[in-house]
Amino acid sequence: MTALLRYQAALLIGSHRWLPPVILYGAYLAVGIQAGGPILDAYGFAAAGLLPIAVWLARICVTNEPPAARNCAAAAAGPGRVHLASLLTAAFGTLLLALPGTAFVALVSDPRSSDHHAVPVVSATGAGLLSALVCVLLGIAIGALCNWPVLRSPGSAIPAGLLAALLLSVVGASPANAAVTGLVTGSDHGTVSIPWLPLAGTVPIAVAAVAAACALSSRRT
């Protein structure tokens, strides 16, 4: 698995297809995070942006290999493991993006609530990171289900991925929405809510989605 992850990571880095989502996320943070703004609001905003980025990176990683090359790797390691490696690479890539995003928020935001109460920075940052993790995992789950081998044509995969990302960002029942809302409403009075419940809801969703996609990868061409 290490060799596969290394191969997929080198593919992602060398393809330069990571540049547009990374630049977009940087611009999103630069425009949306105001210097001196309430820290919990900013963490909520930063985490919400990671969901579509994770969907995008998952699509990049899953489609990065031409079929001939994928077949060679699949014969060596099994198609399911090859697919798992590409989705894990997307997940690690987005989490790697979440770290500088979190650091940026911690640096420029004001550790106060909207009504100017002090907010503990460490627990706020913990809540921000966990919310980011929830958004990344849900984004990877969408990416796994809205791309090959589940949806094979780009004509259905891209609109489905976009729509799912939008819906799971705004619908109240979504764990990502719950985590972000928890941060933003907590910001009103400076109450830090660690998103344990959304995380507990997201992990099985992400595991099931990734497992389904990997299981299908040897049944579709």
Binding site: L11, G14, S15, H16, A68, A73
Partner: peptide
């Protein structure tokens, strides 16, 4: 046919595949 548009050199690609094996 192996028209691999991969961002590797020949030896780089072969080394990755050797590791996977």
């Amino acid at each position: 046919r192996f028209p691999a548009a991969l961002p590797f050199t020949a030896v780089g690609y072969l080394t990755h595949l050797g590791r996977i094996h």
